[in-house]
Design a protein around this nucleic acid. Sequence first.
DNA 1: GGATTTCAGTTGTATAGTACAACGAGTTAG
DNA 2: CTAACTCGTTGTACTATACAACTGAAATCC
Lengths: 156, 156
Amino acid sequence: MPGTPGERQESLDVIQRELTAFARRARAAAARLHPELPLVSYTLLAHIDDRHGCRATDLAAHYMLDKSTVSRQIGALEKLGLVERHPDPNDHRIQVLHPTEAGTQALASTQASRRSAYQERLADWTADDLAGFAEYLLRYNAAGDTSTTSPQTPKA
Amino acid sequence: MPGTPGERQESLDVIQRELTAFARRARAAAARLHPELPLVSYTLLAHIDDRHGCRATDLAAHYMLDKSTVSRQIGALEKLGLVERHPDPNDHRIQVLHPTEAGTQALASTQASRRSAYQERLADWTADDLAGFAEYLLRYNAAGDTSTTSPQTPKA
DNA sequence: GGATTTCAGTTGTATAGTACAACGAGTTAG
DNA sequence: CTAACTCGTTGTACTATACAACTGAAATCC
């Protein structure tokens, strides 16, 4: 069993190094994979679709982005005809975001190509390993959500 | 048991989503953690240090960056007094890059603070889980290295 | 009910990181 | 010597981002 502190530190260093390496390549890789729908827009659109309508503020909170960033991203998506903004009848400050038909389609095709890229890349992994990796990533990201990481000290 | 194809696909989707989420947060998180030494500069500096001197072209190839990008990054590092450029006596086109004393120190302190950030974030993980996560990340990144174009030594 | 405060979103401005293209200087091949 | 190639820089442009200032709408407070 890995019980020595040294092994623990070694694992931490590997995790740090490999996550850094991944982060560095991720954007370039995503850009090459989908020149049509940039990484960030894709992510936001996916979230909007997932929630079947949400507010810009939700997106900003979830992705730890400034509201101005989200505003511009949404503007771009709207200009591309991929999302629609509907004012909330109960609260006129709020814009409820929905994917358009084109947005849903763009998302589906992007997800399909991403999916197949991941499938290919992880083709020789066992189902157990995939499940384990997925669980670790979930745990890792969840830790980030709750901890001190925030761009503008918004957390109350 | 995770034997059904559906579960496999589910894990793949989780991996895709969580890695994407991580990629989106990574830069901002790094920027917050080290306002002094931006992520990319840090990475390049680490590589220069690791190799004990290398060329800008090597960095561009290794990190899949445009040479202009590397040129500017190196320029910034030089302006900060963290790297030095020495002309290669045998080939005057080439600049051999070396970390300065300050560069080595900055790197060490950045690495230390990164390390402690990871330690804190993963404090409640068991050593087994850390080892497992590290192994998965290694495997994942190794797959990416081979699938992408340039033949490079995968990990430092 | 009106003043103040808070919330949602936009816009101006600035910065990092990146790519592509055009170029300059050095090196090598014919 | 000339041509082709290589290494690096610079001009330009674009994406993603943050922060600050602002508008408009809702909530709170007295």
